[in-house]
Structures are given as C-alpha cells and as structure tokens.
Write a protein that binds this DNA or RNA. Structure first.
Lengths: 191, 191
DNA sequence: CCTTCAATATACAGATCGGTATACTCATCC
DNA sequence: GGATGAGTATACCGATCTGTATATTGAAGG
C-alpha cells in the first residue's frame, strides 16, 4: 500500500463514517487525501473497492484491538466477557462516536451480493460466536441463550452510544453483563 | 394529502427503508408512485421534505401502534414493559426487516441541523423516557438505571433483528426483560 | 542510462442528481 | 361557464456523480 493509497483510505474511512457512504463522492475523498483522482483509481479501481477496504480495515483493527484486551484479561470466561465490553467502551470513545460502522454501513448497503456485505455480517456473526463460546463456559448447555443476551446488551450499547441518549451506555451494559453473569454463574453452580 | 401525494410517500417510505435515503432519487420515487416529478414537487417541494415526512409518518404510526398494545395490556408497569417488546416484535415482523428506520436514518443523516434529525432523536428520547417511567414504578428510585437496561435490550434486539443474526431476538429480549423485572421487583419489594 | 512506477495536473465523458418550465387535460365548484 | 387545482407529459437546467484519457514529473532500481 503506497503512502498515497493510505491517505486515500484514511480520508475515505473518516468521511464514510462521519457522513455516510453514499453521501461521500470520490472527488471529495481525493481532495481530502491530497491526491488526484487518477491515483485513487490506479490504486483502488472503484469506489466500491474503497468501501470494501474501509470496512475490512475497520473490522481488522477492531479484532486486533479486542484481541489485545482479551489477552490482557484474566482467563476466566466471565472476566473475558467483561473485557469485551471494556474494549468496546474505549474503542467507541476513540473511534465510534456515531455508533457501529458495520451497523451504519448495513443501513446503506442492502444488496447481499455487494462485496462488502459479508464483512458486515461476518463481524456480527464472529462477535456472536465469541459471546456464545464464552457463555458456554459460564453456563454449560445454555451458552447460546446467554450469548444472545450478551449480544443484545452489546449491540444496544453501541447504538445508544451513537445516539448519545444517556451517559456511558457501554459502561452500563458492562455492569448489567456483570450482574447477569454473576447470577447465571451461581445458578449454573447450583445445578 | 392528495391520493398522488400519498402514493409518493408510500413509495418513498418503502424505497428509503429498503435501499437507504441517499441511494434513492426523486425520479425513482416518482416512477414507483406512478406520478410525474412535477406532481411530486408540487406536493412536497423538495426531497428533504419527503424524507422528513417519511420519518415523521413512521414515528407517528409506531407510536399509535405501541399505544394500542399498551392500552390492551394489564395496568401493572411490568406488564406494560413487556407489552412494548411484544409490540416491537409484531411491528418488526411486519415493517422492519432491516432494523430500526430511525437508527438507519441516523447513519445517513449526520447533520444535527437537518430537519429530520429531531424526529430521530425525539423518538429515541421518548422511548427511553417511556421505559424509565415504567421502570420507576417497578423499582422506585432506580428507574433511570433500569430504564437504561431495558433500552439497551430493546435497541439491541432491533439491531439483531435487522441483521438476522439469531432467531427471534426481540422475543428473547422480552424474556430477558421479564426475568430482569422479576428479580428487580423482588429486590425492590425486599427493601 | 534507461526503464518502471507512483505520482501530478487537467480535461473530459456519460450518467444521474435535485429541481424547474411549459403546455395541456380534466374534474370540481362557486 | 369560468376559475381553480390536481394531475399528465416532456423537455430542460446546472451540478455532481463515477470513471477515463492524456501528458508530464520525479525518484528508485538494475
């Protein structure tokens, strides 16, 4: 990736996230990146490809960021679940003031045959299986249901964060997950 | 509202929701409504105004739909909370296969000075205060926090429904709300 | 030294965008 | 019966959209 291509991708990522994908034209991306349109098309070939690399890049960075937090967490499954919320909280404060970029992209990309579509659904499926796998360790046999609940809390918190509707929704979701895991863990231990 | 204007609004609502606001042009709206562009502009004046009436109309219909469910529910606050989830479940199955139209519009309309912006945030604030008011009846003094949790479950369920990531997320959210209200009610009663 | 390649500048193509103009039809209503 | 208003049909406007063409510069590599 050449320096000019990197600047294009950075400018596109910022503009796509802040203003929406369809509202941002390639001329604006090129101008903000300090690059000519020819360079942009030489590197990426199409706007669609820039969209794909924007989402793929965000997905990759989020997974790496989350992996760091998970590596630093205690090995207990419940601690790792809370680490996911902690990671989201920091990530959102730094990169996601308008909510989840995948959810926002999903609002604009309706066609499942769009090359960016599997990136969107793929991240959500991956997050869900992460939650359910951890949940299965906490409540053996009931991992799916507990994972669903954690997913709901997490997705809801991202949306609420983007809408700025009440203070620190991700922190609140984390606390709810904590009490939920505590009572569920107790119930599982009693069985 | 003339019949032609109604057809315009119906076509715009369907297209905006399915494909996104910026991806749909006025020519397409007019064609799908079986109406000339002149009629469209005579009735609405601008595309922006159509967007505003699209969101305002959906907001109004959702509130009326929800009011019906609340009127039919038992008067107990916990039953009314569950009625909200029940209403959302039916509504989403019929009208919202791609998730919440307000959240999706928020992804495309970033400018807070856009005339549609207060409709989006207004509905979310209204839903939050609905939850918190009901929650305050269930857990006096802790309505805000419980209301936040209900809001997270609800928003998360709408997103999960739109992403089609696991079966019946709104039904699952309802069950989680039920157990949450039960334990919270018990805790409040013990105090 | 000479090729290669990433980059620049500028111009342009064709389509679509939101929005307007003109002329006409038809029904309703004082 | 003439005015009003909702509608059609069609053409147009300037701007913007994604994408391409042409010609040039400058640095790195064998």
């Amino acid at each position: 990736m050449t320096p000019a291509a990197l600047r294009v991708l950075e400018a596109a990522a910022r503009l796509f996230y802040e203003r929406g994908i369809h509202a941002v034209g390639v001329d604006l991306i090129a101008a903000e990146a300090g690059v000519t349109k020819k360079t942009l098309y030489d590197r990426f070939g199409s706007k669609e490809q820039i969209v794909v690399e924007y989402l793929a890049g965000r997905d990759e960075r989020w997974r790496a960021f989350l992996a760091q937090h998970l590596d630093a967490a205690q090995p207990a499954a419940s601690a790792r679940v809370l680490a996911v919320f902690d990671a989201s909280r920091v990530w959102s404060a730094e990169n996601s003031s308008k909510g989840c970029s995948m959810v926002n992209a999903h609002a604009e990309i309706s066609d499942p045959s769009h090359p960016a579509y599997p990136i969107i659904t793929g991240q959500k499926e991956w997050m869900l299986s992460l939650f359910t796998d951890l949940a299965e360790n906490i409540a053996p046999g009931g991992g799916a249901q507990l994972g669903w609940t954690l997913m709901l809390l997490h997705e809801g918190a991202l949306v609420a964060h983007g809408l700025n509707i009440f203070p620190d929704p991700i922190g609140h979701a984390r606390e709810q997950a904590r009490t939920l895991l505590a009572t569920t863990g107790v119930a599982a231990a009693k069985r």
